[in-house]
Computed example of a mutant assay.
Amino acid sequence: MDPKRYLNAEPTYPEVGATRTGDLPPGYHHVRRRYPAGDAAGFTRAADALMTWRVHAALGLSPRATAPRAAPGEVVVNRLGVGPIGLLAPCRVIWTVEEDRRAGFAYGTLPGHPEKGEESLLLEVGDDGAMTFAVTAFVRPGRWYSRLGWPLTVLAVEFFCGRYAAALRRYAR
């Protein structure tokens, strides 16, 4: 599961960067979710956990990355599973943002990922001091088994959105 083996891999979809503008391409399942994530006091802790893959680890994924912090061009391979049975999901970080009141990134699928598409994870503090977590994604099946189980895959995507938000709220405390 060495993420370096994917450094020269190209994304498996042509619409690289579409989550930045929010203009999601047709032909994919679209996800646009916003969740309350605490308040401005917890922003630095939550943002750091998001940008350093700890939120992914809190979900039960085993992230292995080419860098300790999300940055454009870096690769992360998330593994879901126990023991020898596991699913690998290699991704490349497409864009990042780290500002006083916004932090997050988007990553896109690489060959071997069960899906094709891109997902952005963005933490923001509003003018009222409330922190929100937004997930924007476009995905479609990338492997035979994800095509076969597509309805379950869509449910899994939705499930993980909520889990990301819950993990961020814990880090924001």
Results as ranks from 00 to 15, higher is better:
Pro114Lys: 12
Leu24Lys: 10
Leu24Ala: 02
Ala47Ser: 15
Ala89Trp: 06
Arg64Pro: 07
Gly162Met: 00
Glu10Met: 05
Gly104Glu: 08
Tyr107Asp: 06
Thr21Gln: 10
Thr44Asp: 13
Val31Met: 08
Arg92Met: 05
Glu15Arg: 01
Trp53Ala: 13
Pro111Arg: 11
Gly104Arg: 09
Leu168Phe: 00
Arg143Met: 02
Leu50Val: 03
Gly81Arg: 07
Ala9Asp: 13
Tyr164Leu: 01
Pro141His: 01
Tyr164Asp: 13
Ala165Asp: 03
Pro141Ala: 02
Glu118Pro: 03
Ala172Pro: 13
His56Trp: 13
Arg32Asp: 14
Lys4His: 15
Thr21Trp: 05
Glu98His: 14
Thr153Cys: 06
Pro68His: 10
Asp39Pro: 05
Gly117Ser: 06
Val154Cys: 11
Thr109Phe: 00
Pro111Trp: 03
Leu50Ala: 06
Ala9Leu: 14
Ala67Thr: 09
Tyr145Ile: 10
Arg101Lys: 11
Ala165Pro: 06
Ala67Gln: 14
Arg5Pro: 01
Pro14Leu: 02
Tyr107His: 11
Leu123Arg: 05
Cys161Lys: 01
Ala58Asp: 15
Val135Phe: 01
Glu158Lys: 09
Arg45Trp: 07
Glu98Tyr: 14
Arg147Phe: 01
Gly42Met: 14
Val157His: 09
Phe43Lys: 04
Trp53His: 10
Gly126Glu: 15
Thr44Gly: 10
Gly38Lys: 05
Glu115Val: 00
Arg20Asp: 09
Ala70Val: 15
Met131His: 04
Val75Gly: 03
Glu115Arg: 00
Gly27Val: 02
Met51Ala: 00
Gly129Leu: 06
Glu99Pro: 04
Ala9Asn: 12
Thr153Asp: 00
Met51Val: 02
Glu118Lys: 07
Ala89Met: 14
Glu99Asp: 14
Leu110His: 04
Asp23Thr: 04
Tyr107Met: 08
Leu155Phe: 03
Val97Ala: 10
Ala18Arg: 05
Ala106Gly: 07
Leu123Glu: 12
Arg140Tyr: 07
Arg5Asp: 15
Asn78Asp: 15
Arg20Gly: 09
Glu15Ala: 06
Gly83Met: 03
Gly108Gln: 01
Pro14Asp: 08
Gly42His: 04
Val125Pro: 13
Ala58His: 14
Leu88Tyr: 12
Phe43Thr: 07
Val16Pro: 03
Gly73Arg: 07
Thr132His: 04
Leu168Tyr: 02
Asn78Thr: 08
Arg20Glu: 06
Gly149Val: 04
Lys116Met: 06
Leu121Ala: 10
His30Val: 01
Glu119Asn: 08
Leu88Asn: 14
Gly81Tyr: 07
Glu115Met: 01
Thr19His: 04
Val97Met: 08
Glu74Asn: 07
Lys4Tyr: 03
Arg173Gly: 13
Trp53Gln: 01
Arg64Ser: 08
Arg64Met: 03
Ser62Asn: 13
Arg92Trp: 05
Ala37Asn: 06
Phe138Glu: 02
Leu61Trp: 12
Pro90Asp: 09
Gly86Tyr: 14
Ser146Glu: 00
Arg79Thr: 13
Leu122Cys: 07
Ala40His: 05
Trp150Arg: 00
Pro111Ser: 10
Thr109Met: 09
Arg64Tyr: 08
Pro25Ser: 12
Arg163Gly: 09
Ala71Gly: 11
Asp48His: 15
Arg147Lys: 12
Trp53Asn: 05
Leu7Cys: 05
